[in-house]
Amino acid sequence: MIELENVAYSYGGAELLSDISLKLAPGSFHFLTGPSGAGKTTLMKLCYGALLPTAGHVRLFDADVRGLTRDDVAMVRRRVGVVHQDCQFLDHLPVRENVALPLHVSGRSQEAAGEDLNDLMHWVGLTKRANALPPELSGGERQRAALARAVIMSPEVVLADEPTGNVDWDMSQRLLRLLIELNRMGKTVLVATHDLGLIRATKTHVQARVLRIANRRIQLAGADL
């Protein structure tokens, strides 16, 4: 699905990531961890075509990102659900419409009126907040709304960058459970987090592999977690 081959990325000459090879197989659950500034977000961005690698190859659904047009990238994003670290919404539209936004932009507006959206809002526990504006939401609600928006297109891959960044322990547990459920439904999931406790708690529920970024490279973390 998503394949990185000897990928390197540098910001203005300083190499942040180098020689990264990674393959997200369908239905797998991966954690991506490492200290702040190690390049977790950069790696995530490489995975959904927001950044182009400075060396190596990134293949999204068997297509090299360098060969993708802007419209191709848009199509890839419909197959990859992304939960951003700082969830961005259209602040002038209510939560419900923000969650349905991917349907609207891909010309499937009629589905936004359907029962699926209600189910999804219920699943993330935002039914009561459906008509609130995003700035009125709490951190946890924003993260859940972002997750709902990421999965409404029924994507094959869900990428979540610090989805539990600014929520309390209970809420992060709930969010993780949602991600685990998605994985059980067959979605490929990649979660970037620096919270090792969260990873440990999750590993008891799901077969998750943990990737750690250290010294610009990626390593498969062992049983020490």
């Binding site: 890839v76 994003r77 992304v82 961005q88 259209l90 936004l101 932009v105 891909s106």
Partner: peptide, 16 residues
């Protein structure tokens, strides 16, 4: 610019 970023993120084409 913020709106455009969000729209690109959720898969909107430039045309849209």
């Amino acid at each position: 610019a913020q709106v455009i970023r969000v729209l690109r993120l959720v898969g909107a084409t430039d045309d849209y």
